[in-house]
Amino acid sequence: MLKPGEFYQRDREWHPPAYAPDYKTSVSRSPKYSLISLENTASEITGPVFGHNDIDPIDNDLLSNYAKPGESPIGERIILHGRVLDENGRPVLNTLVEIWQANAGGRYRHKKDTYLAPIDPNFGGCGRTLTDENGYYYFRTVKPGAYPWRNWVNNWRPAHIHMSIFGTAFAQRLITQCYFEGDPLIARCPIVNTIPDPEAIERLVAPLDLNATIPLDSIAYKFDVVLRGRRSTLFENRLEGN
């Protein structure tokens, strides 16, 4: 019988490097020494498990999870949906997906954000859900606005939604950002461009998904996430080697 084993090593040339000087904050926050490569132990192939008692059904609906009764946030109503898969192409089931974002004007509901665009009284800006038995998730929200940030004098973040995904193991833990097809700011963003491979950047751009729109209601974007895959072993599920 095949049993799950270690995770495939992370491709560090595909991910952004720690030190990426055009994203200035990374300069003093990047370790100088090499990471110590660790073969997986029980500490890495396990990770927290979440269930439906941890969250509420409304948590994935950013159009209503902070809105006053009968009201809704300003902005373009969108559905953000997709699947969480592993590198073997298998769906990752019942895994926690959390998102956060600015409102349609590009303002975050955060005590440290002082951008002059207004707070939307009906928009919190966060959501969470568990993938279903096919690894599928969806959120309803508004499309976030672009906003300026301090890096060079004139930097603007492309519209984006932050996403946190767990998988089944601490080794799969991932935070990333989802961008939207057709945004001219993507190619100009120093944070996007920390990723060296243009093909890797494309993986973070959600295409318009007309099939998933709700006519006369919400437009849809599809964003699939891939987490690290695992070896299958014919042997006893015991991790060997040093």
């Binding site: 509420d56 998102i99 956060w100 955060h110 932050h162 935070i175 987490l227």
Partner: peptide, 30 residues
């Protein structure tokens, strides 16, 4: 036919909104 892992991006300065909204300054989840 392996897929490639989704590339990582920084959590940014406002990670609290999504993962600890109370610290960002608002109450939303049970």
């Amino acid at each position: 036919d392996y897929l490639k892992e989704t590339p990582s991006q920084t959590a940014g300065p406002y990670v609290h909104i999504g993962l600890a909204p109370g610290a960002a300054g608002f109450d939303i989840y049970r």
